[in-house]
């Protein structure tokens, strides 16, 4: 059976709190928790963001699938760091489990090293809930 993500209200709330504490408070612009079908489970931002998150989620899910397939082609089970660096904003992807993906959009002020620590921590906490 295909995995379906069913979370209750409380789980949604807890996940939002985790993402806020770990990532929004670090200074990231937008956090999206999506599934690999391209659906958005949670979206949070710093209040200054105005991006088309639905298109972003669709493309990110597709892109992630393509990159995973690339990993398999070269004999890797997965790539551990997926990161696109822009001039002002960058995107970081982390795979939470077989179906969930965490997308973080952040500016120059946030160090990738820290962001990776924080996303790892957020992931750990989310996995305890779902």
């Amino acid at each position: 059976m295909e995995y379906t993500i069913e979370l209750n209200k409380k789980q949604f709330e807890s996940i939002e709190n985790i993402l806020k504490e770990e990532l929004i408070d670090l200074g990231v612009q937008t956090v999206l928790l999506i599934d690999l079908a391209g659906n958005i489970l949670v979206n949070l931002d710093d209040g200054k963001s105005d991006i088309d998150i639905y298109s972003l989620a669709a493309l990110a899910a597709g892109n992630f699938g393509a990159v995973s397939a690339m990993a398999k082609v070269i004999g890797e089970s997965d790539f551990s760091l997926l990161f696109h660096k822009g001039e002002k904003e960058s995107i970081h992807f982390s795979k939470i489990n077989e179906d969930l993906l965490l997308l973080t959009i952040f500016g120059k002020d946030v160090s990738l090293g820290f962001l990776r620590l924080k996303t790892a921590e957020a992931m750990r906490k989310i996995l305890e809930i779902i």
Binding site: I5, L7, F12, A37, N39, I40
Partner: peptide, 15 residues
């Protein structure tokens, strides 16, 4: 499968 968010009362459907 469709994503149902009971918190936001939102359903995302993929066709």
């Amino acid at each position: 499968m469709a994503l149902i968010n009971p918190k936001k009362k939102e359903v995302q459907v993929k066709i």
